[in-house]
Design a protein around this nucleic acid. Structure first.
Lengths: 351, 351
DNA sequence: ACGGAACCTTGGAACGTTCCAGACGTGAGA
DNA sequence: TCTCACGTCTGGAACGTTCCAAGGTTCCGT
């Protein structure tokens, strides 16, 4: 009598999982044949195939991915470290990753670092020890050094954070261009005195600031461009606008660093009795779901986040399956989404 | 010369990961000793311990969790299937899970099913094949049958969906109680004619409806209670309110099924020129981040989501480590969060 | 009738760990 | 001096797969 026949695992607990050998015994074939059938290889007789399938079904066999990855030395897993799951920006990227992974025979598994470097490090370590075939880092706050170190042992693609590292790939949107689009839109509506409440030291903030100035310049409005410091939070937007309104010189439109901050701005305008868009136009950035709510209805700059997720997986597979060695840093174009927070400037007060 | 010394893996690609044997060779000890040191066992001389640690460090050794789980027959992984990552409700539950897992030497790994049963099934299969030590299902839309089937091979706890299955544990908030709290709050402000825009067939919707009627009854307001059908979406709330306002009989307050729908309701009130809370009080449910935004400022019912996540992990470990066999179905109390969307009813129109 | 190709099936090694049983000192107690 | 215990270290089996080389059949062409 085989030792396995001794039933449960001794702790009197949950019965051990059936293995390929159990299936083989029941079907009266070798374990190798079972393996072949389960991976549906050609050159297996219909008879045996049926017997194995039936036996597997009957005992509720479920392949052990652990043993499989060990011997194959690949897990078919894509690990995704998301810096912050609370940020709705990432959830759509995740959708794209999930979709692309499923479509290529991989499974995506997520992790989060709660915007803290130590935790991100731990999360990455888990992914690394699991021997995932590739790692996506969504908006990491980790140091470039550490990211490069991870990239030394597994393909890595960084999403939503600019990088020029030769060690890994990255994919970001063109923040400069996005800011320019926002300004162009406002100018086309007739605005001249436009302010920017920036995102402080947040990711992409510097580029958006540069794009803003750049665009104002092109329209010959450099002198009426105004920038105040904010942050990528509701509060950052509120404070920025408050500062701005303290000494505004006929500003009729504001481009805010991101949507969350724009909502804060909306709030501040409310407090000052300014109506949007009648008295003040407002443009955000990112097009998070929030911006589309009827009650907020924010004109904003959209990043093709889902596509970015899909592309991230593609980049990973190029490295893993096609053995690409050189780094690729992709920059995708953002686009304008016009909603109800922008309109022509009020006649009164226009210079 | 050992075959391993042949450098890379033949595909000319990424160098293979160093193993415990590589560390052993370099440190001049057996692989068993390396294993002992790495799991810092007692009874290892300081000298050897140092040698092993140094060697591991030098060659950048990182344990292979796959091999480890295979032989130990436990992965120290908690798999979390989240039905919908877009729903901010879950992100806080996730925080709790992550925190509790870390605190107990486990790692949490997430998955998502995009609110579709087939995809949820696939996601669970991935988790099952990975041999996670336990699975948390956050708001599954999967059939109870299928959930029970999964629970037959691994401990399962369902979060945010009522269940009485003997096969697994669950943790939910007391929706009846939450609805009662909402009504009590409105009544205490002086409201009498209160309506409920429900969540249709959404999870917990029936209980919230029952709690609403129950509370109205207790206050002797059964006859002025009004319920209209909605859904747990912005649109559901908007439509519900529109229906309601079509034939309102002096309604001064509305309790909406969840926060998202409440935002839709806010919108509909706007459209009808009703000011909140001056003309109409509004209470939501769930206390998602959105509700706290200054611009929305919604009074709502809070579920202790983070705690629910922590508790879910605890339930899992009770089964896995302490071998509990009987099912536990926990119900936690929700609480009121008063913000700016509720106030006393307007004098005009009060009966 | 014979060789070999084509097809199907199988045993065993390997993947990188953990764990068990036992080997090898060394020092204490008899 | 001989045992025995203790502390330290090691080899080998096991975990559940995949994959390779090779073993059998069957069938075809000559």
């Amino acid at each position: 009598m085989s030792p396995r026949a001794a039933a449960d695992d001794g702790r009197g607990s949950r019965r051990r999982h059936p293995t390929i050998v159990d299936v083989a015994e029941r079907a009266g074939v070798s374990k190798s044949l079972v393996s072949l059938v389960l991976r549906d290889a050609p050159n297996v007789s219909d008879e045996k195939r049926a017997a194995v399938t039936k036996a597997a079904e009957e005992i509720g066999y479920r392949p052990n991915a652990v043993a499989r990855s060990l011997v194959r030395r690949r897990s078919n897993l894509i690990g995704v470290m998301v810096s912050d799951l609370h940020n709705p920006y990432f959830t759509e990227v995740i959708d794209g990753i999930q979709e692309a992974a499923r479509g290529s025979g991989y499974h995506a598994l997520f992790n989060t670092g709660g915007r803290a470097a130590v935790e991100e490090d731990e999360a990455l370590d888990t992914l690394l020890q699991l021997r995932t075939d590739g790692i996506v880092m969504a908006g990491p706050v980790l140091s470039p050094r550490r990211i490069a170190a991870v990239a030394a042992s597994v393909p890595v693609v960084v999403v939503a954070k600019h990088s020029r590292s030769p060690a890994h790939d990255s994919i970001t949107n063109d923040d400069r261009m996005g800011a320019r689009i926002a300004v162009d839109h406002l100018v086309s509506l007739g605005h001249r005195r436009i302010a920017h409440v920036d995102g402080g030291r947040g990711a992409g903030s510097a580029q958006r600031r540069a794009g803003f100035l750049d665009a104002m310049d092109r329209h010959g409005l450099r002198s009426s461009a105004r920038i105040v410091t904010g942050a990528f939070t509701e509060e950052g937007g509120r404070d920025g606008v408050t500062t701005l309104l303290g000494d505004r010189r006929g500003v009729t439109a504001v481009f805010v660093g991101n949507d969350l901050a724009a909502v804060g701005a909306l709030d501040a305008f409310d407090d000052h009795g300014l109506r949007v868009p009648a008295d003040m136009s407002l443009v955000g950035y990112d097009n998070i779901a929030l911006a589309g709510l009827g009650h907020i209805d924010l004109t904003t700059i959209d990043q093709p986040r889902r596509d970015m997720g899909v592309t991230a997986v593609r980049l990973l597979l190029e490295r893993h399956d096609e053995d690409r060695r050189s780094a690729r840093h992709l920059v995708v174009p953002p686009s304008l989404v016009v909603r109800g927070s922008t309109g022509p400037p009020a006649r009164i007060g226009s210079a």
